[in-house]
């Protein structure tokens, strides 16, 4: 077997698979910690083990041969990947801050940031559209949901 030098590592896939495996193991251990009665583990335990076996089967796919068919992410530049990650970061910030700084402020800032990330270069268009859309949404959703949205400015 002299395939050693001919394999590469798909790091992103490795991270994803690790996250799944760690989550499954942690969940199984947590459930076993609560109770080992069948009424608790009936489905979780066999399914977790099944998932771990599947993960073992997938593992070689994380280290494909260099000459193997390309993985789905092909021809992506570093800039494009950075944009995706920036968008994810913005979405996370929005989720964690909207109750603290108010839906109006958080939403507006998110809109401005993501429109810029998506390539809107005209700042007046960006700010105008973001403000308009924020107001529309807050009054739209605000009137029909059975509880209020925390707001700061509006």
């Amino acid at each position: 077997m002299s395939s050693k030098p001919r394999r590469k590592v798909v790091w992103g896939h490795l991270v994803l698979l690790s996250v799944i495996v760690v989550t499954v193991i942690a969940y199984l251990l947590d459930a076993r910690g609560v109770s080992t009665l069948p009424t608790n583990l009936l489905l979780i335990q066999p399914l977790s083990i099944f998932a771990l076996i599947l993960a073992a089967f997938i593992l070689p796919g994380v280290f494909p041969r260099k000459d193997a068919a390309k993985e789905p992410v092909a021809g992506e530049t570093r800039l494009e990947l950075m944009r995706c990650l920036a968008l994810i970061a913005a979405l996370g910030l929005l989720a964690f801050t909207l109750e603290r700084i108010g839906f109006d402020v958080a939403t507006f800032l998110f809109m401005v940031a993501t429109m810029a990330i998506c390539g809107e270069r005209r700042w007046w268009v960006n700010i105008g559209f973001s403000a308009l859309f924020t107001i529309l949404l807050i009054y739209g959703y605000g009137t029909i949901t059975p509880f209020p949205f925390p707001l700061t400015v509006l």
Binding site: G102, T143, P148, F149, P150, L151, T152, V153, L154
Partner: peptide
Amino acid sequence: MTSRLSRRHMLQLASAG
């Protein structure tokens, strides 16, 4: 939550109410 925030909060509620 700051008091300023909860006042806004109430104003919003008032209109819904």
